[in-house]
Design a protein around this nucleic acid. Structure first.
Lengths: 207, 207
DNA sequence: GTCTATAACCGGATAGAC
DNA sequence: GTCTATCCGGTTATAGAC
Protein backbone atom coordinates (compact mmCIF):
# COMPACT_ATOMS: atom_id res chain seq x y z
CA UNK A 1 0.00 0.00 0.00
CA UNK A 2 1.19 3.51 -0.78
CA UNK A 3 0.56 4.69 2.77
CA UNK A 4 2.82 1.95 3.95
CA UNK A 5 5.88 2.86 1.90
CA UNK A 6 5.47 6.53 2.70
CA UNK A 7 5.57 5.78 6.38
CA UNK A 8 8.59 3.51 5.87
CA UNK A 9 10.37 6.34 4.13
CA UNK A 10 9.45 8.84 6.81
CA UNK A 11 10.77 6.54 9.48
CA UNK A 12 14.06 6.05 7.65
CA UNK A 13 14.34 9.75 6.89
CA UNK A 14 13.68 10.68 10.51
CA UNK A 15 16.47 8.53 11.79
CA UNK A 16 18.95 9.97 9.30
CA UNK A 17 17.96 13.63 9.62
CA UNK A 18 17.89 13.45 13.40
CA UNK A 19 21.38 12.02 13.52
CA UNK A 20 23.07 13.96 10.73
CA UNK A 21 20.99 17.12 10.47
CA UNK A 22 19.69 18.59 7.24
CA UNK A 23 23.09 19.39 5.79
CA UNK A 24 24.70 16.12 6.77
CA UNK A 25 21.87 13.87 5.64
CA UNK A 26 22.21 12.08 2.29
CA UNK A 27 19.27 11.08 0.14
CA UNK A 28 20.87 7.81 -0.94
CA UNK A 29 21.39 6.79 2.68
CA UNK A 30 17.74 7.44 3.41
CA UNK A 31 16.73 5.49 0.31
CA UNK A 32 18.87 2.51 1.27
CA UNK A 33 17.53 2.54 4.80
CA UNK A 34 14.01 2.49 3.43
CA UNK A 35 14.90 -0.34 1.05
CA UNK A 36 14.30 1.64 -2.12
CA UNK A 37 16.34 3.82 -4.47
CA UNK A 38 16.85 7.53 -4.83
CA UNK A 39 14.50 7.90 -7.79
CA UNK A 40 11.62 6.44 -5.88
CA UNK A 41 12.40 8.62 -2.93
CA UNK A 42 12.01 11.67 -5.13
CA UNK A 43 8.87 10.21 -6.62
CA UNK A 44 7.21 10.17 -3.19
CA UNK A 45 8.73 13.32 -1.67
CA UNK A 46 9.71 15.71 -4.44
CA UNK A 47 12.90 17.09 -2.85
CA UNK A 48 15.19 16.83 0.13
CA UNK A 49 13.80 20.06 1.46
CA UNK A 50 10.24 18.86 1.21
CA UNK A 51 11.05 15.53 2.82
CA UNK A 52 12.80 17.33 5.63
CA UNK A 53 9.78 19.47 6.35
CA UNK A 54 7.52 16.44 6.53
CA UNK A 55 9.93 14.75 8.90
CA UNK A 56 10.45 17.79 11.05
CA UNK A 57 6.79 18.58 11.47
CA UNK A 58 6.08 14.96 12.30
CA UNK A 59 8.84 14.83 14.92
CA UNK A 60 7.75 18.02 16.62
CA UNK A 61 4.15 16.95 16.68
CA UNK A 62 5.03 13.55 18.07
CA UNK A 63 7.29 15.04 20.71
CA UNK A 64 5.03 17.78 22.02
CA UNK A 65 1.84 15.78 21.89
CA UNK A 66 3.52 13.03 23.90
CA UNK A 67 4.23 15.54 26.60
CA UNK A 68 1.22 17.80 26.65
CA UNK A 69 -1.15 14.90 26.42
CA UNK A 70 -2.45 13.63 29.71
CA UNK A 71 -0.66 15.76 32.28
CA UNK A 72 -3.76 16.66 34.17
CA UNK A 73 -4.03 20.17 35.63
CA UNK A 74 -6.76 19.14 38.05
CA UNK A 75 -4.47 18.28 40.94
CA UNK A 76 -2.44 20.00 43.60
CA UNK A 77 0.84 21.40 42.30
CA UNK A 78 3.01 18.77 43.89
CA UNK A 79 1.18 16.03 42.00
CA UNK A 80 1.27 18.05 38.81
CA UNK A 81 5.03 18.40 39.15
CA UNK A 82 5.51 14.68 39.77
CA UNK A 83 3.50 13.77 36.71
CA UNK A 84 5.09 16.39 34.49
CA UNK A 85 8.66 15.41 35.29
CA UNK A 86 7.93 11.73 35.00
CA UNK A 87 6.25 12.00 31.62
CA UNK A 88 8.79 14.47 30.30
CA UNK A 89 11.72 12.26 31.17
CA UNK A 90 10.09 9.14 29.86
CA UNK A 91 9.31 10.85 26.59
CA UNK A 92 12.78 12.25 26.15
CA UNK A 93 14.68 9.15 27.18
CA UNK A 94 12.85 7.26 24.47
CA UNK A 95 13.91 9.85 21.86
CA UNK A 96 17.37 10.89 23.02
CA UNK A 97 18.55 12.25 19.69
CA UNK A 98 15.52 14.38 18.99
CA UNK A 99 16.39 17.05 21.53
CA UNK A 100 19.81 17.62 20.07
CA UNK A 101 18.33 17.73 16.60
CA UNK A 102 15.66 20.25 17.55
CA UNK A 103 18.09 22.53 19.33
CA UNK A 104 20.30 22.46 16.28
CA UNK A 105 17.77 22.91 13.52
CA UNK A 106 15.62 25.40 15.38
CA UNK A 107 18.70 27.48 16.07
CA UNK A 108 19.01 28.54 12.47
CA UNK A 109 17.27 31.86 12.18
CA UNK A 110 16.38 30.46 8.76
CA UNK A 111 12.84 31.37 7.88
CA UNK A 112 11.90 27.91 6.73
CA UNK A 113 12.07 26.34 10.15
CA UNK A 114 10.68 29.32 12.01
CA UNK A 115 7.61 29.34 9.80
CA UNK A 116 7.27 25.65 10.54
CA UNK A 117 7.29 26.09 14.29
CA UNK A 118 4.83 28.95 13.98
CA UNK A 119 2.47 26.83 11.94
CA UNK A 120 2.72 23.96 14.39
CA UNK A 121 2.04 26.15 17.39
CA UNK A 122 -1.03 27.59 15.67
CA UNK A 123 -2.21 24.17 14.65
CA UNK A 124 -2.38 23.12 18.27
CA UNK A 125 -3.77 26.46 19.35
CA UNK A 126 -1.26 26.73 22.14
CA UNK A 127 -1.72 30.21 23.46
CA UNK A 128 -0.21 30.11 26.89
CA UNK A 129 2.22 27.49 28.13
CA UNK A 130 0.49 25.03 30.48
CA UNK A 131 3.37 24.87 32.96
CA UNK A 132 3.36 28.62 33.41
CA UNK A 133 -0.36 28.63 34.03
CA UNK A 134 -0.01 25.85 36.58
CA UNK A 135 2.78 27.65 38.41
CA UNK A 136 0.85 30.89 38.56
CA UNK A 137 -2.17 29.11 39.98
CA UNK A 138 -0.06 27.34 42.59
CA UNK A 139 1.29 30.69 43.71
CA UNK A 140 -2.17 32.23 43.89
CA UNK A 141 -3.34 29.32 45.99
CA UNK A 142 -0.39 29.64 48.32
CA UNK A 143 0.97 26.21 47.46
CA UNK A 144 4.44 27.54 46.66
CA UNK A 145 6.55 30.64 47.09
CA UNK A 146 6.01 33.57 44.75
CA UNK A 147 8.72 32.84 42.18
CA UNK A 148 8.80 34.11 38.61
CA UNK A 149 6.67 31.59 36.68
CA UNK A 150 8.62 32.04 33.44
CA UNK A 151 11.96 31.47 35.15
CA UNK A 152 10.61 28.40 36.90
CA UNK A 153 9.25 27.08 33.62
CA UNK A 154 12.63 27.50 31.98
CA UNK A 155 14.34 25.85 34.94
CA UNK A 156 12.02 22.90 34.92
CA UNK A 157 12.49 22.21 31.23
CA UNK A 158 16.23 22.77 31.55
CA UNK A 159 16.57 20.21 34.33
CA UNK A 160 14.67 17.64 32.31
CA UNK A 161 16.18 18.19 28.89
CA UNK A 162 19.80 19.02 29.49
CA UNK A 163 21.25 15.62 30.44
CA UNK A 164 19.95 14.18 27.19
CA UNK A 165 20.99 17.08 25.01
CA UNK A 166 24.49 17.04 26.44
CA UNK A 167 24.66 13.30 26.79
CA UNK A 168 27.88 12.88 24.83
CA UNK A 169 29.79 15.45 26.88
CA UNK A 170 28.42 14.24 30.19
CA UNK A 171 29.20 10.60 29.56
CA UNK A 172 32.66 11.61 28.47
CA UNK A 173 33.27 13.74 31.54
CA UNK A 174 31.61 11.69 34.25
CA UNK A 175 33.08 8.23 34.63
CA UNK A 176 30.55 5.44 34.26
CA UNK A 177 27.53 7.65 33.65
CA UNK A 178 24.91 6.11 31.35
CA UNK A 179 22.32 8.79 30.73
CA UNK A 180 19.88 6.48 28.94
CA UNK A 181 19.91 3.78 31.59
CA UNK A 182 16.72 3.13 33.53
CA UNK A 183 18.63 3.80 36.76
CA UNK A 184 19.84 7.22 35.73
CA UNK A 185 16.47 8.32 34.40
CA UNK A 186 14.79 7.37 37.67
CA UNK A 187 17.52 8.98 39.77
CA UNK A 188 17.21 12.08 37.65
CA UNK A 189 13.47 12.30 38.25
CA UNK A 190 14.02 12.20 41.98
CA UNK A 191 16.82 14.73 41.90
CA UNK A 192 14.76 17.19 39.88
CA UNK A 193 11.71 16.89 42.10
CA UNK A 194 13.80 17.12 45.23
CA UNK A 195 15.61 20.25 44.05
CA UNK A 196 12.57 22.01 42.66
CA UNK A 197 10.23 21.19 45.49
CA UNK A 198 12.67 22.28 48.14
CA UNK A 199 13.54 25.27 46.01
CA UNK A 200 10.04 26.60 45.80
CA UNK A 201 8.17 25.33 48.83
CA UNK A 202 7.16 27.82 51.47
CA UNK A 203 9.73 28.58 54.12
CA UNK A 204 8.99 28.27 57.81
CA UNK A 205 8.90 32.05 58.11
CA UNK A 206 6.20 32.37 55.49
CA UNK A 207 3.71 30.11 57.14
CA UNK B 1 52.14 39.29 9.26
CA UNK B 2 51.35 35.61 8.77
CA UNK B 3 50.14 35.26 12.34
CA UNK B 4 47.70 38.01 11.64
CA UNK B 5 45.99 36.46 8.65
CA UNK B 6 45.80 33.09 10.32
CA UNK B 7 43.94 34.59 13.20
CA UNK B 8 41.66 36.47 10.82
CA UNK B 9 40.85 33.22 9.08
CA UNK B 10 40.23 31.41 12.35
CA UNK B 11 37.87 34.13 13.44
CA UNK B 12 35.94 33.98 10.20
CA UNK B 13 35.90 30.20 10.23
CA UNK B 14 34.67 30.11 13.83
CA UNK B 15 31.69 32.27 13.07
CA UNK B 16 30.70 30.16 10.07
CA UNK B 17 31.25 26.75 11.63
CA UNK B 18 29.46 27.73 14.81
CA UNK B 19 26.43 28.91 12.91
CA UNK B 20 26.25 26.29 10.16
CA UNK B 21 28.05 23.30 11.63
CA UNK B 22 30.70 21.28 9.86
CA UNK B 23 28.41 19.96 7.16
CA UNK B 24 26.67 23.24 6.51
CA UNK B 25 29.79 25.40 6.44
CA UNK B 26 31.21 26.40 3.03
CA UNK B 27 34.86 27.10 2.42
CA UNK B 28 34.15 29.94 0.01
CA UNK B 29 31.94 31.64 2.59
CA UNK B 30 34.74 31.44 5.14
CA UNK B 31 37.20 32.77 2.59
CA UNK B 32 34.99 35.71 1.70
CA UNK B 33 34.41 36.53 5.33
CA UNK B 34 38.16 36.54 5.89
CA UNK B 35 38.68 38.75 2.83
CA UNK B 36 40.67 36.18 0.86
CA UNK B 37 39.93 33.37 -1.62
CA UNK B 38 39.53 29.64 -1.33
CA UNK B 39 43.01 28.84 -2.63
CA UNK B 40 44.64 30.90 0.07
CA UNK B 41 42.42 29.36 2.65
CA UNK B 42 43.72 25.94 1.64
CA UNK B 43 47.24 27.27 1.60
CA UNK B 44 47.01 28.15 5.28
CA UNK B 45 44.83 25.30 6.53
CA UNK B 46 45.23 22.29 4.25
CA UNK B 47 41.63 21.09 4.32
CA UNK B 48 38.19 21.80 5.66
CA UNK B 49 38.61 19.02 8.18
CA UNK B 50 41.88 20.42 9.44
CA UNK B 51 40.53 23.94 9.67
CA UNK B 52 37.55 22.65 11.59
CA UNK B 53 39.73 20.93 14.14
CA UNK B 54 41.72 24.09 14.73
CA UNK B 55 38.54 26.07 15.20
CA UNK B 56 36.92 23.50 17.41
CA UNK B 57 39.86 23.10 19.73
CA UNK B 58 40.22 26.85 19.99
CA UNK B 59 36.55 27.33 20.82
CA UNK B 60 36.53 24.65 23.49
CA UNK B 61 39.68 25.96 25.04
CA UNK B 62 38.39 29.50 25.06
CA UNK B 63 35.06 28.46 26.51
CA UNK B 64 36.25 26.21 29.30
CA UNK B 65 39.17 28.32 30.32
CA UNK B 66 36.87 31.32 30.63
CA UNK B 67 34.79 29.37 33.08
CA UNK B 68 37.29 27.39 35.08
CA UNK B 69 39.59 30.31 35.41
CA UNK B 70 39.20 32.27 38.60
CA UNK B 71 36.27 30.67 40.33
CA UNK B 72 38.01 30.39 43.63
CA UNK B 73 37.34 27.29 45.73
CA UNK B 74 38.59 28.98 48.92
CA UNK B 75 35.24 30.31 50.03
CA UNK B 76 32.07 29.09 51.64
CA UNK B 77 29.77 27.25 49.25
CA UNK B 78 27.26 30.05 48.96
CA UNK B 79 29.93 32.41 47.66
CA UNK B 80 31.30 29.74 45.36
CA UNK B 81 27.84 29.25 43.89
CA UNK B 82 27.32 32.99 43.39
CA UNK B 83 30.63 33.31 41.57
CA UNK B 84 30.17 30.22 39.49
CA UNK B 85 26.73 31.11 38.21
CA UNK B 86 27.72 34.70 37.53
CA UNK B 87 30.81 33.79 35.55
CA UNK B 88 29.11 30.94 33.74
CA UNK B 89 26.24 33.11 32.56
CA UNK B 90 28.49 35.97 31.57
CA UNK B 91 30.66 33.62 29.55
CA UNK B 92 27.77 31.96 27.79
CA UNK B 93 25.79 35.08 27.06
CA UNK B 94 28.82 36.45 25.25
CA UNK B 95 29.00 33.29 23.11
CA UNK B 96 25.38 32.35 22.62
CA UNK B 97 25.91 30.19 19.54
CA UNK B 98 28.77 28.14 20.90
CA UNK B 99 26.61 26.05 23.21
CA UNK B 100 24.32 24.97 20.42
CA UNK B 101 27.32 24.20 18.25
CA UNK B 102 29.03 22.11 20.90
CA UNK B 103 25.91 20.13 21.69
CA UNK B 104 25.48 19.41 18.01
CA UNK B 105 29.02 18.53 17.04
CA UNK B 106 29.85 16.65 20.20
CA UNK B 107 26.71 14.60 19.73
CA UNK B 108 28.16 12.76 16.76
CA UNK B 109 29.63 9.57 18.09
CA UNK B 110 32.15 10.28 15.33
CA UNK B 111 35.62 9.43 16.51
CA UNK B 112 37.18 12.62 15.24
CA UNK B 113 35.45 14.87 17.71
CA UNK B 114 35.61 12.44 20.60
CA UNK B 115 39.35 12.14 20.23
CA UNK B 116 39.50 15.91 20.22
CA UNK B 117 37.63 16.28 23.48
CA UNK B 118 39.76 13.58 25.02
CA UNK B 119 42.94 15.36 24.01
CA UNK B 120 41.67 18.66 25.34
CA UNK B 121 40.69 17.19 28.69
CA UNK B 122 44.13 15.62 29.02
CA UNK B 123 45.82 18.83 28.01
CA UNK B 124 44.23 20.62 30.95
CA UNK B 125 44.75 17.67 33.24
CA UNK B 126 41.18 17.83 34.42
CA UNK B 127 40.74 14.75 36.51
CA UNK B 128 37.73 15.49 38.60
CA UNK B 129 35.16 18.16 37.92
CA UNK B 130 35.65 21.17 40.23
CA UNK B 131 31.95 21.70 40.89
CA UNK B 132 31.51 18.14 42.10
CA UNK B 133 34.45 18.49 44.44
CA UNK B 134 33.05 21.73 45.81
CA UNK B 135 29.64 20.20 46.39
CA UNK B 136 31.05 17.20 48.17
CA UNK B 137 33.09 19.41 50.45
CA UNK B 138 30.07 21.58 51.24
CA UNK B 139 28.15 18.47 52.25
CA UNK B 140 31.00 17.25 54.43
CA UNK B 141 31.15 20.61 56.12
CA UNK B 142 27.42 20.63 56.77
CA UNK B 143 26.85 23.69 54.61
CA UNK B 144 24.16 22.02 52.52
CA UNK B 145 21.94 18.96 52.54
CA UNK B 146 23.39 15.62 51.47
CA UNK B 147 22.31 15.63 47.82
CA UNK B 148 23.92 13.60 45.04
CA UNK B 149 26.87 15.75 43.88
CA UNK B 150 26.70 14.51 40.30
CA UNK B 151 23.01 15.23 39.98
CA UNK B 152 23.51 18.68 41.45
CA UNK B 153 26.37 19.33 39.06
CA UNK B 154 24.19 18.37 36.12
CA UNK B 155 21.36 20.53 37.42
CA UNK B 156 23.57 23.53 37.90
CA UNK B 157 24.98 23.38 34.39
CA UNK B 158 21.55 22.69 32.96
CA UNK B 159 20.04 25.76 34.59
CA UNK B 160 22.83 27.95 33.25
CA UNK B 161 23.14 26.59 29.74
CA UNK B 162 19.65 25.68 28.67
CA UNK B 163 18.11 29.10 28.01
CA UNK B 164 20.92 29.89 25.58
CA UNK B 165 20.91 26.52 23.87
CA UNK B 166 17.17 26.66 23.37
CA UNK B 167 17.07 30.39 22.76
CA UNK B 168 15.24 30.15 19.43
CA UNK B 169 12.43 28.00 20.79
CA UNK B 170 12.07 29.99 23.99
CA UNK B 171 11.90 33.37 22.31
CA UNK B 172 9.37 31.95 19.91
CA UNK B 173 7.20 30.50 22.66
CA UNK B 174 7.46 33.18 25.32
CA UNK B 175 6.18 36.55 24.17
CA UNK B 176 8.74 39.33 24.49
CA UNK B 177 11.55 37.21 25.94
CA UNK B 178 15.02 38.35 24.93
CA UNK B 179 17.45 35.78 26.24
CA UNK B 180 20.56 37.76 25.41
CA UNK B 181 19.42 40.98 27.06
CA UNK B 182 21.27 42.21 30.10
CA UNK B 183 18.02 42.16 32.06
CA UNK B 184 17.26 38.53 31.34
CA UNK B 185 20.78 37.38 32.11
CA UNK B 186 20.69 39.11 35.48
CA UNK B 187 17.20 37.84 36.26
CA UNK B 188 18.32 34.37 35.30
CA UNK B 189 21.28 34.52 37.68
CA UNK B 190 18.99 35.39 40.56
CA UNK B 191 16.44 32.75 39.67
CA UNK B 192 19.08 30.02 39.50
CA UNK B 193 20.67 30.98 42.80
CA UNK B 194 17.31 31.31 44.47
CA UNK B 195 16.13 27.92 43.29
CA UNK B 196 19.35 26.07 43.98
CA UNK B 197 20.05 27.60 47.32
CA UNK B 198 16.56 26.99 48.63
CA UNK B 199 16.67 23.57 47.04
CA UNK B 200 19.75 22.41 48.88
CA UNK B 201 19.98 24.42 52.06
CA UNK B 202 19.45 22.63 55.33
CA UNK B 203 15.86 22.29 56.49
CA UNK B 204 14.75 23.43 59.91
CA UNK B 205 14.48 19.81 61.00
CA UNK B 206 18.11 19.09 60.19
CA UNK B 207 19.57 21.80 62.36
C1' DG C 1 5.09 2.48 -9.26
C1' DT C 2 9.74 1.01 -9.79
C1' DC C 3 14.02 0.85 -11.78
C1' DT C 4 18.78 2.31 -14.36
C1' DA C 5 21.22 5.80 -16.26
C1' DT C 6 22.46 10.33 -16.51
C1' DA C 7 22.00 15.19 -16.28
C1' DA C 8 23.11 19.32 -13.72
C1' DC C 9 25.22 21.32 -10.12
C1' DC C 10 27.96 22.26 -6.20
C1' DG C 11 31.94 22.41 -3.32
C1' DG C 12 36.55 20.96 -1.78
C1' DA C 13 40.90 20.81 -3.47
C1' DT C 14 44.89 21.72 -6.68
C1' DA C 15 47.78 23.53 -10.71
C1' DG C 16 50.32 26.99 -12.12
C1' DA C 17 51.11 31.94 -13.27
C1' DC C 18 52.65 36.00 -10.94
C1' DG D 1 52.15 34.54 -0.45
C1' DT D 2 48.42 35.50 -3.47
C1' DC D 3 45.59 35.02 -7.28
C1' DT D 4 42.59 32.81 -11.43
C1' DA D 5 41.20 28.93 -13.58
C1' DT D 6 40.11 24.29 -13.36
C1' DC D 7 39.62 19.60 -11.90
C1' DC D 8 37.03 16.00 -9.94
C1' DG D 9 34.23 13.55 -6.77
C1' DG D 10 29.95 13.53 -4.71
C1' DT D 11 24.90 14.77 -4.38
C1' DT D 12 20.40 16.23 -5.74
C1' DA D 13 17.27 15.67 -9.13
C1' DT D 14 15.23 14.03 -13.54
C1' DA D 15 14.56 11.37 -18.03
C1' DG D 16 12.82 7.53 -19.81
C1' DA D 17 12.36 2.40 -20.19
C1' DC D 18 9.58 -1.21 -18.13
Amino acid sequence: MTKDIESTILKAASSVFVKDGYDGARMNVIAEKAGINKALLHYYFRSKNHLFQMVFERLMHDFFSSIYREVSMDTDFRTYLDNFVSIYLNTISKRPYVIRFMIWELGHGSGTVNELIGRIMKKWEIKEIPVITAVQRAIDRGEIRAVDPIQLFISLIALCIFPFAARAILENKVEGLKVLSKEFVEARKEAILDLIWNGISLKEDDR
